Computed example of a mutant assay.
Amino acid sequence: MNVALWIAAGLLAAVALVGGAVKVAIPKAKLAAQRGGEWTQGISAGSIKAIGALEVLAAFGLVLPRLLDIAPVMVPVTAVCWMALMVGATTLHGRLGQGKLAMVTAAYFGLAVFVAVGRF
């Protein structure tokens, strides 16, 4: 079970790190021009950067506390926060008619539930 939790947390951390880095590093106009970038409409550039920064922090919070054995309770807390972020992402993609992206974010939500329950 521990190995499965590490794999799930590592996968979520990789997704969070890449997704967050993209949001922080790429300007809003370029994100909007990408396929599936319609979600950026109506969201300020600062909000996009803030979401990206939260995702980067989540990437570290999903693995480092347990890895370093410093406040390991932060892993499930981070997973719960990631769940909240994925509820928003799933809702947004669903409203935009992006069913595939909504399903992907729902799957990330499920992985976060697994990590949160397994680590609490």
Rank of each mutant, 00 (worst) to 15 (best):
residue 114 F to G: 10
residue 90 T to R: 00
residue 96 L to D: 00
residue 106 A to T: 12
residue 23 K to Q: 13
residue 45 A to Y: 07
residue 68 L to D: 11
residue 89 A to K: 13
residue 71 A to S: 13
residue 55 E to F: 06
residue 7 I to F: 04
residue 106 A to F: 15
residue 9 A to E: 05
residue 45 A to M: 05
residue 69 D to G: 06
residue 104 V to N: 05
residue 105 T to M: 03
residue 56 V to E: 08
residue 17 L to Q: 02
residue 41 Q to S: 10
residue 91 T to R: 02
residue 25 A to R: 15
residue 22 V to A: 12
residue 69 D to A: 14
residue 109 F to Y: 11
residue 28 K to R: 15
residue 105 T to N: 13
residue 22 V to T: 07
residue 46 G to H: 06
residue 90 T to W: 01
residue 66 R to M: 13
residue 119 R to C: 03
residue 55 E to D: 07
residue 49 K to S: 05
residue 94 G to F: 00
residue 6 W to V: 01
residue 73 V to Y: 13
residue 113 V to T: 10
residue 2 N to H: 13
residue 120 F to E: 00
residue 31 L to M: 08
residue 22 V to I: 15
residue 92 L to T: 06
residue 37 G to M: 01
residue 75 V to W: 07
residue 107 A to C: 09
residue 71 A to F: 15
residue 29 A to F: 04
residue 25 A to M: 15
residue 33 A to M: 05
residue 22 V to K: 06
residue 34 Q to K: 09
residue 35 R to H: 10
residue 62 L to E: 04
residue 10 G to Q: 05
residue 73 V to I: 14
residue 100 K to Y: 13
residue 115 V to G: 12
residue 54 L to Q: 07
residue 90 T to N: 02
residue 66 R to C: 04
residue 47 S to A: 14
residue 4 A to S: 12
residue 3 V to E: 06
residue 43 I to Q: 02
residue 99 G to P: 00
residue 7 I to T: 06
residue 110 G to I: 08
